[in-house]
Design a protein around this nucleic acid. Sequence first.
DNA 1: ACTATCTTGTTGTAATTGCAACATTTTATA
DNA 2: TATAAAATGTTGCAATTACAACAAGATAGT
Lengths: 212, 212
Amino acid sequence: MIQVFDNISTKNRVKLLNTLESHTLHFNKNNSFLPYISKDNIIGIIKKGYAQIIRTDHNGNRTIIEELEENDLFGTEISSLKNKEYDIIAKEETEVIIIDYNTIINCSANNKSFYNEFTKNLLQIFTTKIKEKNERLEIITKKTIRNKLLEYFSIMSKKHGSKHIYLPFTFTALADYLAIDRTAMSRELKNLKDEGFIEIKNKRIDLLYDEY
Amino acid sequence: MIQVFDNISTKNRVKLLNTLESHTLHFNKNNSFLPYISKDNIIGIIKKGYAQIIRTDHNGNRTIIEELEENDLFGTEISSLKNKEYDIIAKEETEVIIIDYNTIINCSANNKSFYNEFTKNLLQIFTTKIKEKNERLEIITKKTIRNKLLEYFSIMSKKHGSKHIYLPFTFTALADYLAIDRTAMSRELKNLKDEGFIEIKNKRIDLLYDEY
DNA sequence: ACTATCTTGTTGTAATTGCAACATTTTATA
DNA sequence: TATAAAATGTTGCAATTACAACAAGATAGT
């Protein structure tokens, strides 16, 4: 997977960050980014450390929306950043690079290769993000829990070319991803097992059918 | 809203399209694009005309996913293009520019301003797309029809700074957008009216509450 | 202006789902 | 390793929702 600074030398990275008038913030464990990010239209890059985008709904339930590791990018969920439900929390000592999105767009460094590499990298990262969101929409727009699960299985199965699906996260997180109640999902998974469509061993789901 | 060829002169546009080894396809009314697009990893631009991305579900119900007008872009819903449920249909005489996505990324025209403008335009278009998808996810992940509607109203209201919302499409299309049954939505809209939360006049919805 | 097609509103009903409450197990962390 | 926190599985039940089947109104195409 492409990352923001791919094909940009360490030396040029410094030049790039100067050109883009970036600044770096430091956060200690469990500190929130948001109070220190004034503008909404920014891109953040995790320079070092590890953070999480957290959402707290009106019932007080907290969900991890995204895990941010070194070189990961945040801020494209732009409409979300000013949304009071969201917060970004450093889970360890973390350094963050903040760049004004308008500077990226209006910057006149078109003749610098490091700048053009950077925008190309962004382009690819964004393309991937769009694909991921399409995928999730594809799944969530199915009307029943069963069909959401089957669509999810189908996509995962195609992606890895296998009928053995290894859940990349917990079942609780899967329910969040599918935007359904965890216990209702649990019930439906049991139904699928009982009807002989799937088998579940820990985080591995085996598909026992050919097509759906 | 930014378009793909903004800030690129007609002359440079020709150079750009050569550099990117693009080719142009012509379609008559009601013709499908897909049989003529071999690769999956492409970007299409509507040069002239008008087309629709259509989805046909397993029940045979057809939904318009997106309307494509001059200079509009398709193909970022990349995972969708090879999905058999989807089709793109010319609704009138239409010309389409096809560009291999890999050519855009691997192209070595970094020194050409028209190329850099183009990638910057793409960047902005993609950012907008990501925002739109986030917005929809934000809405669809709400658990009840009522909350989906209220979230939609809230976003539309903020976006236009008004409590008068003008539906940009039909109620049928709104139900599709929210991924809910149309008649169930209709019932819930009636409830919201009866409880004094909203008023509806044609395609205009007035919000009678302050916050939700 | 006529006709076919699309949109909208309504209602009954069965099926699906969210929620609450709980017991267990697993995983983190002091 | 002890203890707290998070994940999992289960079940009953009330609330929500999809679906089917209409009727009536609006819109578009010829």
